[in-house]
């Protein structure tokens, strides 16, 4: 049996969880075993039935008032309890911040190895052969995962979600966990709504992004104007945030945000791999750079060779002309 961790927040299952279930369903079937899920929270029973659509045959339902707010270590305690009772061959989470965190707690509590962000999993007799993401996905690692059961998370961002051919409602197994105060010590005590000003980076159809080539904080004024004209958002490279020109919330890349707009306009950005992983999801990429050999230019769909401080004002003038 493979046990999967269902990630949810405020009554909604994290969509990547379905990608993970799609990937793991095949694995469970190959092993002739069942696919179980664990659902943890204060009011989550309503989320269980729909899991059948993704091949889940049984849900271990842990509902308790004290689990009202997210508490990573308590979640892990619940997973370990179900693990001990059900003896799965593997416990699998999705490769998100939250599930990676919970699975690391599970690994620490059981002193078992954990492979985070796996792209491929090949069960073998003893150690499982896994391919996992390194460097935010710009490099892969092939590794042997030891331990019993296997603990891993699946990088599910690129997985196309499929429902199971014969999805019937899963069996519900209620579990009452034995949680201590220590398990519940770290928990969300309050939440603050995200600051919403203008269109967000992840929703914008166009991202106008600037790098070192912009030259200064003031230099971003033209990028802001162009973004406003195109109903887009402003992004930037790490050099820009490190220089204090723009806030980190706008940084695109491995240690920033990943975006997938219709068009990504990279102005004065060289195209280091750590930046590229953040923007490669864009449908089209247009690079504006003085250097025709810059990786951003050679990897882009379209490029203009030139000084962004001349190119962008000319582009805006042309757009204004069109709009009349």
């Amino acid at each position: 049996m493979i046990l999967t961790l269902i990630e949810h927040d405020q009554g909604v299952i994290d969509p990547q969880t379905f990608g993970m279930l799609t990937a793991v369903r095949g694995l469970a079937a190959e092993q002739g075993g069942a696919l179980h899920a664990i659902l943890i929270g204060a009011d989550v029973a309503g989320l269980a039935a729909g899991l059948g659509d993704y091949g889940v045959t049984a849900v271990h339902l842990i509902e308790q008032e004290s689990l009202d707010a997210y508490a990573p270590n308590a979640w892990a305690a619940c997973v370990v309890e179900v693990m001990a009772a059900e003896k799965p061959t593997a416990v699998v989470g999705v490769g998100t911040e939250r599930s990676n965190e919970v699975m690391a707690h599970v690994a620490a509590r059981t002193d078992l190895p954990l492979a985070a962000n796996c792209l491929a999993v090949q069960p073998e007799d003893d150690a499982w052969f896994v391919t996992r993401m390194r460097w935010g996905g710009t490099l892969h690692e092939e590794a042997r995962l030891h331990g019993e059961p296997k603990l891993l998370t699946i990088a599910a961002l690129g997985i196309e979600v499929e429902t199971a051919p014969s999805g019937s409602a899963p069996e519900i197994i209620a579990v009452i966990p034995d949680l201590t105060d220590a398990d519940l010590l770290v928990r969300v005590i309050s939440r603050v709504e995200p600051e919403r000003k203008g269109i967000s980076l992840t929703d914008a159809p166009v991202v106008v992004s600037g790098g070192r080539g912009v030259g200064s904080a003031e230099g971003f004024a033209v990028l802001e104007q162009l973004a406003a004209l195109l109903n887009g958002a402003v992004g930037c490279s790490r050099v820009v945030t490190n220089n204090g020109w723009r806030p980190h919330a706008e940084q695109i890349g491995q240690t920033g945000t990943r975006v997938a707009p219709e068009l990504y306009i990279a102005c004065g950005i060289s195209g280091a791999i750590q930046h590229w992983v953040g923007c490669k999801g864009a449908k089209q990429i247009l690079a504006i750079n003085t250097d025709a050999e810059a990786p951003m230019v050679t990897k882009a769909d379209y490029a203009v060779i030139g000084d962004l401080h001349e190119v962008i004002p000319a582009l805006m003038a042309e757009i204004e002309k069109l709009k009349g």
Binding site: L286, A287, A292, V297, T298, K299, A300, D301, Y302, A303, V304, I305, G306, D307, E310, V311, P313, A314, L315, A317, E318, I319, L322
Partner: peptide, 15 residues
């Protein structure tokens, strides 16, 4: 990559 042009002169192709 398709090079749209060089400098400010590339504006019409960009639009």
């Amino acid at each position: 990559v398709t090079i749209l042009g060089h400098g400010a002169a590339a504006a019409p192709q960009m639009v």
